[in-house]
Design a protein around this nucleic acid. Structure first.
Ligand SMILES: [Mn+2]
Ligand SMILES: [Mn+2]
Ligand SMILES: [Zn+2]
Ligand SMILES: [Zn+2]
Lengths: 156, 156
DNA sequence: AAAATATTGATACATTTTATCATTTTTTTA
DNA sequence: TAAAAAAATGATAAAATGTATCAATATTTT
């Protein structure tokens, strides 16, 4: 593993440990495995997908699905991961190691791209203000057909 | 009921009947009751909330919860209603009798306000295009604290 | 090392939504 | 308009995602 990534992971680990200490929580093998998996697999994953990813990559870990849910919730509250909601199809999690962004999603193949747009973010703040709201967060997801699927001329 | 509203409702009803005819579906008392309730109660409601609304307002209808779900799905596919997702807390439905809009939602009291912003919509189209996507739809929800709740100085 | 504390995996349970199916209602046909 | 065909219904079982419970285990503190 390249040097830089090791440094980044160590930093992340320290951040997690700090959150745990602050809340009188314990540093366990399972929590470390989940954090490492988040780090090693950039992308957007459902709890179930993490569960299978860990079973495959850390066959000796034997983590229960409940621990996956518990730990992702903890990491989300701690803002170490962010979640992307798919309605009743669950939430996909990703490491929060990049600046805020939104997503554009292919309705055919599920491809997820990321983007950020300062002008939209600015308008959102203005709209909230106009309505007297104190804005805390937002969700924005664009849905469509990706270039690859367009080429295949899929009928959705 | 005022005259204008009757005209609008009749128009809506004809639209629904046309969808049903087109798909060889039948016009039933239950489907009419649900459409009428959507029309009479503007707002954003969960299937369960519609179910209770109808039980209260049409005590003789005896509609099953399954029919509520089935009919809302049908109306959504037919673009007669639109849905607002609340993750695992379900979807709130509203009659699609106004132009496209997005929502700003109070995290404390659940108040939902509507807005439309042409400049955001335009940027969304541009972003999709830049990524080679054919944009079909989007979701955007702003979350925050409404003026009333702000005044109460709620600690979230 | 012992005691205190928190976590874990298994699994029961909760919640939202869909599937199943016998019966009823609506529409078509004659 | 009566009979036949087709679809919808309500009740409820089942699926799917996520949370709660709990005895056993691991971590941390003393
Ligand atoms: Mn992302
Ligand atoms: Mn609305
Ligand atoms: Zn695609
Ligand atoms: Zn409020």
């Amino acid at each position: 593993m390249p040097f830089l990534e090791n440094i980044e992971y160590d930093h992340l680990l320290e951040e997690f440990k700090s959150v745990l200490r602050k809340n009188s929580l314990k540093f366990t093998k399972q929590r470390e495995t989940i954090l490492k998996t988040l780090y090693n697999f950039p992308g957007h994953f459902l709890p179930e997908e993490f569960y299978n990813l860990i079973k495959k990559n850390e066959p000796n870990s034997n983590i229960g699905i409940a621990t996956i849910y518990r730990t992702l919730n903890l990491l989300e509250e701690s803002e170490i991961v962010t979640a992307l909601s798919f309605g009743k199809n669950g939430k996909k999690y990703e490491l929060a190691n990049k600046p805020h962004h939104d997503h554009i999603i292919c309705k055919n193949c599920g491809l997820i791209l990321e983007f950020e747009d300062k002008s939209i973010e600015k308008r959102q703040k203005e709209i909230a203000q106009q309505n007297g709201f104190e804005l805390t967060n937002h969700i924005m997801q664009l849905y469509g057909i990706c270039p690859k699927c367009k080429r295949k001329k899929i009928g959705i």
